[in-house]
Nucleic acid binder design. Structure first.
Lengths: 183, 183
DNA sequence: TCAAACATGTAACACGTTACATGATTTG
DNA sequence: CAAATCATGTAACGTGTTACATGTTTGA
């Protein structure tokens, strides 16, 4: 996932690996916060795949590599963004990572992806409900409680996507007004 | 995490690796569903560490390894269960994995761990709120929305722990009655 | 009799972490 | 002048996945 985050950052401005790490800490850190030991090898791979390029500069005596995204990198990011939103069960990180970069997608496409994601969530919820029906008789309360968490968490996520997320996708610019009191 | 799940399974009954995989699919699959390529090497490691042992049997012509947990394995599981409930940001899997086996802990200890977990969640929520205050001015709506998801998700999780989870921990036996309508 | 399920395992690969290694510049 | 920050990178390790390899038994 780190590679996609780095690619997404480069969509807006050229950066060094060090700056990407700093940028992560004030933007994606809630769901992805990679270490340098992950960032630098990722950049090397992205370069080898021809998705990014860099030029070496020296700024105030420090040698830097300023990376920029290539056309093939832009394509690759978009290819990733349009894969199904909901993949695995509880790994919300990859979902949030995609949403974070949805601004690079046409509005209707974002809406379609979210609607499909909601349907997939509902299907997953049903699967979990079936599982619960199967095991509820002999499961321990704490065991059962992890399933209940799953069900309640699906409910929360589905409602959140139907409410906030779809609203934002439908009219990106009117979003801020509704949430100002949080600050 | 797989190793702890396997250890937890063996707390209640002896099993083969194959059976553990089946058991996972009807119990922990929502948050952990390891493959054989993970289970068999994990069992080998657990055996080398002296946490489990096995005896080879042949049942209806099939060679099996029936694993059982050793005292040191029981200690290891409990040591893991009492580590702080909330570790990383969005990785709910490890939290649910612990809760799943909380029945092996004295009731008051479970309650203490959950209360501590709630406090940690509240602290994490505050951190995220501070982050949002810092970046809200110049962040894109979709970017901001991933932070909002985090905040709302913390609220949901905190309320869920204060409600359901603490109830179960305080009186494990009276839990089922309140949720029967789900089935 | 043939496919599915039972049963165990390894090899190649992917991707992350921490710790280490190096060296410059900035700031108190 | 020492410590923090800037800046890049590698090595060892951990842990997961998929695909492969092998062989048995059970059931339609």
């Amino acid at each position: 996932m780190t590679e996609y985050i780095l690619l997404g950052f480069l969509m807006e401005q050229n950066m060094t690996g060090y700056e990407m790490k700093q940028h992560m800490s004030i933007s994606t850190s809630y769901f992805v916060d990679a270490s340098f030991g992950s960032i630098y090898p990722s950049l090397k791979r992205l370069e080898q795949k021809g998705l990014v390029e860099f030029r070496e500069i020296t700024e105030s005596g420090k040698a830097k590599k300023v990376y920029s995204i290539k056309d093939r990198g832009r394509e690759e990011l978009k290819k990733w963004l349009v894969t199904p939103l909901i993949s695995s069960k509880v790994d919300i990180s990859s979902v949030l990572a995609k949403i974070f970069f949805f601004r690079f997608l046409p509005q209707e496409q974002a809406v379609t992806l979210i609607k499909q994601g909601i349907q997939d969530l509902e299907a997953s919820r049903q699967d979990l409900l079936n599982l619960k029906a199967k095991v509820a008789q002999y499961a321990d309360p704490f065991e059962l409680c992890t399933l209940d968490f799953g069900l309640d968490n699906y409910d929360f996520t589905i409602r959140w996507c139907q409410g906030h997320l779809l609203n934002i996708a439908k009219q990106p610019d009117s979003y801020l007004s509704g949430r100002k009191e949080e600050l």
